[in-house]
Design a protein around this nucleic acid. Structure first.
Lengths: 104, 104
DNA sequence: TTCTATATTCGATGTTCGTCGAACACGAAA
DNA sequence: TTTCGTGTTCGACGAACATCGAATATAGAA
């Protein structure tokens, strides 16, 4: 039995409050901050100082909020930002990302 | 004995996560949505469907996050957005406010 | 002073959240 | 098949949260 693909919600079903909530945690902000737009990052490249199970939990929150996409590559997991989020909430993530370095 | 003035935190002491958390609740988003920039609104003008004690709680959360300012006018309370927030987090509240009507 | 209107604080309740370690599932390698 | 590398899920815990009604504090009116 093949492994289940990751569930990525339809962005139309996501509210602004959902996205803001997902972005309101320091660990999750650190994750998003280390994701350059348009690029893919390996799961194990995140140095956010939490246990693997906790990191997995935060990934799921970000995924359910439509912010990130996860993809399996054999044994590993590849993470990236969901570009469609900008169509649903224009400038939101861009603004947060721009403010992040100075005000984590 | 005069009533204590409202406490308004220094915006430098507020993190981006704090602001995003304050904005991640539907009731608080409804409050912010009904506050036109540069204008003052009476406390009892908010129709957000919660008990007065709950509304008071949410006002405090928004105030502690540097998003709103409260001012006493005799027996009543006047609420407004804090314009300095735009200096600390440029475009953040503006972006959220712009996205609010369509995606509450 | 007594009463009324306005908002805050308090106490309680049930929910959600962040965190961890242990156990698990899967793919790949030995 | 057995073992190893990678994340995920589960169960538990304490902390934080949203909500309400009751009690309280204050300012102004009667």
């Amino acid at each position: 039995m093949a492994q289940e693909p990751y569930f990525h919600p339809d962005l139309d079903a996501i509210s602004l409050a959902d996205v803001l909530h997902a972005l309101s945690d320091p660990v999750r902000l650190a994750i998003v901050k280390s994701l350059a737009p348009g690029e893919e990052t390996a799961w194990n490249a995140f140095m956010v100082g939490v246990a693997p199970s906790t990191l997995s939990h935060h990934m799921k929150v970000l995924r359910n909020a439509g912010i990130i996409a996860n993809r399996r590559d054999g044994m590993r997991c590849i993470v990236s930002l969901r570009p469609e989020l900008s169509a649903r909430f224009p400038d939101l993530l861009e603004t947060v990302l721009r403010l992040l370095p100075e005000a984590a």
